[in-house]
Amino acid sequence: MRLVLLGAPGSGKGTQAARLAKRLAIPRLSTGDMLRAAVSEGTPIGTRVKAAMERGELVPDDLVVAIVAECISLPDAKSGFILDGFPRTVVQATALDDILRAADLRIDRVLELDVDEAALLVRILNRADEAKVNGFARADDTEAALRMRLEEYRGQTRPLADYYRGQGLLKSINGLQSINKVANSLLEALDA
């Protein structure tokens, strides 16, 4: 099964993608994790994207598409995968469609976590506080960066819902439920 998980920053995509990956026994491919690893390792891509990520901006499409294309071609992704944080733009979605079509594959379902923006701010600031306590603070877990990321999301990522709805692939889930209820709702959407 090949899935895309959509949602605004702080909507719970990472948490739910990890749960789904475990439940479905397929890899979770998080572009955010891949890019943060590239930054921490000082790779050429990491160097190019570090400043943009710290400002809360989206990473250029060509870099993200290249990373994702490589990851979905790996042996552990042959039986399926969950894309978490990709695509973020319609341009990226059409590039993904082209990559999959070349391999005679397709996306099976797109799941969207719908969460109110005021709740997102609270979640991000709580996540930042917890990360500081645990020594894993992210540079983009600030109110200013979140506001910029939400603006980017509304302008560039939100149109993906219409793109995938037009293909009959989109299922929206109330992301304000408890973690377990969201997980159950996602599984129900896959069974539908």
Rank of each mutant, 00 (worst) to 15 (best):
V4Y: 13
L5F: 14
L5W: 09
G7K: 09
P9V: 00
G10T: 11
S11N: 09
G12Q: 00
K13L: 15
K13S: 01
G14L: 03
T15L: 08
A17N: 02
R19W: 07
L20M: 04
A21D: 00
A25G: 07
A25M: 06
I26V: 03
P27D: 07
R28Y: 05
T31I: 14
G32I: 10
D33E: 06
D33Y: 05
D33A: 15
M34L: 04
M34D: 02
L35S: 13
R36Y: 05
A38M: 03
S40D: 07
G42P: 02
G46Y: 03
R48H: 08
V49N: 07
K50F: 08
A52L: 03
M53S: 05
E54S: 12
E57D: 13
E57G: 11
V59H: 06
V59C: 11
V59M: 12
P60S: 07
P60L: 01
D61W: 05
D61I: 15
L63A: 10
V64K: 00
A66C: 07
I67Q: 03
E70V: 00
S73M: 03
D76C: 06
A77H: 09
K78D: 10
K78E: 12
S79P: 09
L83Q: 05
L83I: 06
D84M: 02
G85P: 15
F86R: 01
F86G: 07
F86K: 15
P87T: 01
R88H: 11
T89G: 14
T89S: 09
V90G: 02
V90D: 01
Q92T: 01
A93N: 01
T94S: 08
A95Q: 04
L96D: 12
D97A: 12
I99H: 12
L100H: 13
D104K: 15
L105K: 14
D108R: 14
V110M: 02
L113H: 14
D114S: 11
D114W: 00
L121C: 06
V122F: 11
R123C: 14
I124Y: 09
L125Q: 10
A128W: 15
A131D: 10
K132G: 09
K132W: 07
V133M: 12
A137G: 15
A137V: 14
A139G: 09
D140G: 02
D140V: 05
D140H: 01
D141A: 03
T142L: 13
E143T: 01
A144N: 05
R147H: 13
R149N: 11
E151G: 06
R154S: 14
G155M: 13
G155H: 04
Q156H: 06
Q156M: 03
Q156R: 06
R158A: 14
D162W: 02
G166F: 10
G166M: 04
L169H: 06
L170V: 15
K171C: 11
S172E: 11
I173K: 13
L176T: 11
S178M: 12
I179L: 02
K181N: 13
A183P: 07
N184L: 14
S185E: 02
A192H: 11
